[in-house]
Design a protein around this nucleic acid. Structure first.
Lengths: 358, 358
DNA sequence: TTCTACGATCGAATCGATTCGAGCCGCCCG
DNA sequence: CGGGCGGCTCGAATCGATTCGATCGTAGAA
């Protein structure tokens, strides 16, 4: 026993498994078995070990040592495109996260929040050096390429939600384009011809403003682009505003701009998220327009917007399912299998925010 | 070199630092220095090592081994009282989380989400066995006692936000009682005498319904109790409804019950959170009551309720500051200091949801 | 009674990096 | 020309547990 007494080192020495084993009069291997439960240990021995542990104030095996030996940490990383606050603003992300926890439940793993915003400062634990067994990439970002490269080098199994990143990484997505097209067709069939769109951001800078060809061309966001294409499939000339993020406030701002001129008001607005749609509804009503009488509004996501009076007409996407599928794909990857990418289908929910134009 | 070639084991062998060192013709220690940057290494050597690493597809030092050796993992745990989805419903929690990330920024640590709901199943990574350097406990729960005990045994520095858990654990809180009292006094000074309250849940079961003495007595939630006491300081006979969680919908439900009988309507409602307050406002307006004309509503938190038309009169608590303070306390604890508990002050923000009674 | 088989326990190797002290080499200064 | 010093590199110990193969003892079977 080379361990120095606490008095010598000055620092408090936590007891180790070896200490416990010594006190219990057994070997370290036996003590380990007593704790892990795997392997045959006589009940009396086990009790003796546990008693020694409790006497010494031993808090259980050190997870760091355990994970080194076992080669896995029991932690799954979640890479978000933005900082925590921004990412959790939209309930969709939270639902997906919740789905992920369900999906990886069989692993019994914890969730480590990571962001791929810029460089990793000094000693920071980023994607570069996080003790994770696997990773879920949520939402695409221009930097996702770098993240993927790092993960590949480190040999960490990964799954991407919404954002094609590489052929060897399974992707969980939805039919963004087709779904939006269905929604747009529904509006067209109602008789709408003057339709505007409020999109999610196209670039990492989250530029807000009118939808311009430059922005579209520079797009690094598949989701926004695909949904826009779906709208274009039905209304080729559609134009509108780009929001800086998915929130009610952004939707309201965009709608104010779209509805400012009474002479050129659209009769319907396609919003790329429910939060944006909710903002559009509120802005319209503030301007004295009735929804859906004067303005039809189509959302995307199918979340319950807390507090909104209307039942949004929207494209309901299975967010929780997506998260769960991503989690399950990770489990599968860790089991050595090669799960396929999955594409979920959204369904049009007709609520009370759409009607034929006046 | 005892390493088997990949062909023999069948599994892909990731290269280790030793492999890199061998290929670069240096010792493992030098290779380590080349990566960590600490210690003097000739530029030429460093380049050689990095080149060898890149050639071998080495993804950097294994964080598990590193954390074992260094004795810290670079991960901070966040213990939530409920499952992820529920905890992130209220923006206040997200703001606090965001503050925590700011506070622990100097550590460069990642955030591991943990919940203290029930037992830890089998191999699950819970509070019992998570490789964390420190922990923030957010929101109190009846089980928090067990969590604290585990953390103490494991010798993991902890800080609690809103929830006194033990003298050796610093607590970050706000003046719940005094703040509510100030709000209540403001309502009284406006002339209100018929005041009702909508509270946060009192117990782990999140019982919803009328506020009863039984619920109050069985309270395990300091926050709800303290805020109720503050209201009682001004309106000793106050009664009302208990919500199951902090959300607009719950607020609306509670308000519907409170306002159901036109003969016994309160002229003001004290809500224990802004989400609840927003629900109360919406419910009142649905019933054709004007806010603040027919009903004054007081909130708590000072969050911007996305989409609510009103400027809530509310007790603004510095959520982000609380989170940051908790993070800073952790940093301090890890530095061997003993940070004091901190109690923040809330300020009454007078918006447009309060007025003298008719 | 002897051999077998199995349950319990132990020793030692291992996971992959970090870190400390020692050693080596070349340069500068006296 | 010699001693000293500083910068670079290396060896070996260490972090704390898990795990595999070996050992020991005993009970049951032949």
């Amino acid at each position: 026993m080379t361990r120095e007494p606490a008095a010598t080192t000055g620092a408090i020495q936590r007891p180790t498994l070896a200490d416990v084993a010594a006190k219990a009069g057994v070997s370290a291997s036996t003590a380990s078995l007593a704790f892990s439960g795997s392997g045959p240990v006589a009940d009396a021995t086990k009790e003796r070990v546990l008693a020694a542990a409790s006497e010494l104030g031993y808090g259980g095996p050190d997870p760091r040592a355990r994970s080194l030996r076992q080669g896995r940490s029991g932690i799954v990383g979640v890479v978000l495109a933005e900082r925590v606050r921004a990412a959790f603003l939209d309930p969709v992300n939270i639902q997906m996260l919740d789905g992920v926890t369900e999906g990886i439940a069989p692993l019994g793993a914890g969730l480590l929040l990571l962001t791929d915003t810029g460089e990793e400062g000094g000693n920071a634990v980023g994607i570069e050096s996080a003790p994770v067994d696997a990773v879920v990439l949520i939402g695409c970002s221009p930097r996702v390429g770098r993240s993927v490269e790092v993960l590949r080098r480190r040999g960490i199994p990964s799954v991407a939600i919404e954002g094609a990143v590489g052929e060897d990484i399974p992707e969980i997505s939805i039919d963004n384009r087709e779904a939006t097209r269905r929604g747009a067709e529904y509006l067209r069939d109602l008789g709408h011809t003057e339709v505007a769109i409020v999109t999610l951001p196209f670039d990492a800078a989250r530029t807000r403003g009118p939808l311009t060809p430059e922005l579209e061309r520079g797009s690094t966001a598949d989701t926004a682009s695909e949904r826009l294409r779906g709208a274009r499939d039905v209304f080729p000339e559609i134009t509108g505003r780009v929001a800086a993020t998915s929130s009610i406030e952004e939707g309201r701002e965009a709608a104010k701009a779209l509805l400012a001129d009474p002479a050129h008001r659209p009769t319907a607005v396609i919003a790329q998220s429910d939060l944006l749609a909710a903002g559009v509804v509120l802005a319209a009503e503030e301007l004295g327009l009735s929804v859906p009488g004067d303005l039809s509004v189509l959302g995307f996501d199918g979340i319950r917007v807390d507090g909104l009076q209307h039942d949004l007409t929207t494209l309901v996407q299975p967010s929780v399912d997506k998260g769960r599928a991503a989690g399950e794909a990770l489990v599968s990857l860790l089991a050595g299998e090669t799960p396929a990418s999955r594409c979920f289908t959204s369904t049009l929910h007709v609520g009370d925010t759409t009607a034929p134009p006046r």
